[in-house]
Amino acid sequence: MKDHAEHVEARGEVAPRHLMPLSRADALHLLGSVSLGRIVFTHQALPAVRPVNHCVDGDDIVISLHESATLASLTAPAEGPGLVVAYEADVIDPETHLGWSVVVTGYARLVTHPEELDHCRSMLRPWVAGAMDHALRIRPDIVTGFRLDAQPPPAVPAR
């Protein structure tokens, strides 16, 4: 006999999905497999979200910025670790609802050293026409992620 999930999917509905947490290493690996994400920051005392392209450089996330970008005007105090931001990327199939999502919270700083900016330019492929004037490097503090799976995670045997 079919289980509940098979009955639901037979009616054209999506069965409930199971969240499987990702390790930090797996989350950063998945983040490096895509080039588009969303940065969350504070702008004029309000939360703001912008889609941006990125690459992963070691454990850091680097995003490209253009001179006219709101993010390019953000500056962190020189003595602090940077601006607190969140960064999210995901790949979730709209039909099956299977996929993954990763959220990084950390400190962001504009890349100002000319050699480091050249290095960032060599790794990034901006989607927007025009030169990449700036780059922002996010040093992750908290990395969380999950995979949406159709099957529940395997049971861990009791010891």
Rank of each mutant, 00 (worst) to 15 (best):
E116P: 08
H119G: 00
P16D: 14
S68P: 00
S33Q: 14
S122P: 08
V49E: 00
S64R: 06
S122I: 03
P94L: 03
D90A: 11
C55Q: 08
D93F: 02
S33G: 14
E116M: 09
C55N: 01
G106C: 11
G99V: 06
A78N: 05
G80H: 01
R38I: 02
G82F: 10
G12N: 06
H119F: 09
C120E: 05
L36D: 11
A89V: 05
L98K: 03
S122E: 12
T96Y: 07
F41T: 08
W100R: 07
Q44L: 14
T112W: 13
L74R: 10
I61T: 10
G80A: 14
T75C: 10
L83E: 10
V56H: 08
P77T: 09
A89K: 02
E115H: 13
W127K: 08
V104P: 00
A72D: 05
E9F: 09
L83R: 11
V91I: 01
P21V: 02
L65A: 06
R11W: 02
I39Q: 06
Q44V: 03
V104K: 03
I61E: 04
L22W: 13
H43Q: 10
L46Q: 12
G82A: 07
V91E: 15
R50D: 11
V102F: 01
R24I: 06
P47G: 07
A45W: 09
E95V: 11
E116S: 08
L71R: 00
E13L: 15
D57E: 12
F41L: 15
V84D: 00
T70Q: 12
M123P: 08
P51W: 00
T96E: 09
C55Y: 01
C55M: 07
E115R: 13
A76I: 01
D93C: 06
P126F: 12
F41D: 04
H113L: 05
D90K: 00
T112G: 12
H119K: 12
L71P: 06
S64W: 00
P81L: 13
W127D: 10
V102A: 02
V85A: 11
Y107C: 07
V52E: 04
P114Y: 04
A76D: 05
A27L: 04
T42L: 10
R125Y: 15
V84A: 14
A48Y: 01
S101K: 01
G58Y: 04
Y87Q: 06
L46W: 07
P94T: 06
D26I: 03
